[in-house]
């Protein structure tokens, strides 16, 4: 259903990336890492991760994007359900992975661990965060946490139809400025806003210069000093880690998953520069 949607010209032009002839990018760099997390192998150019709170219509967005091209399973070694599917847009093949619905990435449940691992270690080319327009405040903490990890984010402001019924309007331009990433209003149940969402995904997937991860300032001088101090050491140890401040903060909080990534050196893999996209 999504495949033949009109191409609004933002996607990669055929001259730059001949469709189907991209043998080298069939296995994008992130795919090997994602395969380790349980992603099915296959031919695709870009990996999109779909994140969001529970009850935001995330699976409706997923279904609208993939149509019938999807299958479900479990995350490797976890009991958390995993759905993935594919779609193509502008001659480019995308693999989309539906992450478990979570409120945060603070590692208080298996779902949060899975989502965090995929976002941090899988390094998807685009993270689509589905948020509920009627409960923006409840949804933004997750967006902010994901923004601290990566700048390759598109926010799908979903359920705008419901928001309209409730007399709620969201200023997407203001939100785009605040978050530093594209915000697209959608009503996935009515297929509203999907062409714009696809265009935004394509644009983020192909950009060589994504926004920097978000720096949140903590209004506590001692904490700020400690974060800056530790972030510098993280960067010295793992040069090129794109989100050293976030890693430092998690280490200060004693996040067991991140400590393990430091010990095993998984974190070091993040330091390798992205291979040419």
């Amino acid at each position: 259903m999504a495949a033949p949607l009109p191409t609004p010209g933002v996607g990669p032009s055929p001259e730059q990336e001949p469709a189907g002839a991209c043998a080298s990018c069939a296995l994008a760099p992130s795919s090997a890492r994602l395969a380790r997390l349980g992603l099915a192998p296959g031919r695709y150019d870009h990996v999109v991760a779909l994140a969001g709170n529970p009850n935001t219509g995330k699976s409706t967005v997923f279904n609208a994007l993939t149509g019938l091209r999807q299958h479900v399973g479990n995350w490797a070694g976890k009991t958390v359900a995993r759905a993935e599917g594919g779609f193509s847009y502008g001659g480019t093949a995308y693999r989309i992975v539906d992450l478990p619905g979570t409120y945060s990435l603070l590692s208080t449940s298996t779902d949060e661990d899975v989502a965090r691992d995929v976002l941090l270690f899988g390094r998807p080319d685009v993270v689509v965060v589905v948020v509920d327009a009627t409960r923006l405040e409840r949804n933004l903490p997750l967006v902010l946490q994901i923004r601290q990890i990566t700048g390759r984010v598109v926010v799908a402001l979903n359920l705008v139809d419901e928001a309209r019924r409730h007399g709620i309007t969201v200023d997407t331009r203001h939100l785009t400025r605040e978050l530093g990433v594209p915000v697209v209003a959608t009503a996935a149940r009515r297929n509203e806003g999907l062409p714009e969402l696809l265009a935004a995904i394509a644009q983020v997937a192909t950009t060589d210069d994504p926004p920097k991860p978000l720096r949140l300032i903590h209004h506590d001088p001692a904490l700020e000093r400690a974060v800056a101090d530790l972030a510098a050491q993280v960067e010295a140890r793992f040069p090129g880690v794109p989100n050293s401040r976030w890693v430092a903060l998690r280490l200060l909080e004693g996040d067991a998953g991140i400590e393990e990534a430091v010990r095993s050196g998984t974190l070091g893999e993040l330091a390798t520069p992205r291979e040419a996209a």
């Binding site: 923006l136 902010l144 949140l216």
Partner: peptide, 17 residues
């Protein structure tokens, strides 16, 4: 502080009738 930031951004972006 994360939730406070979220509340601030939501507060400036959302308009309720």
């Amino acid at each position: 502080s994360l939730y406070t930031d979220a509340a601030r951004i939501a507060g400036t972006s959302v308009d309720r009738d």
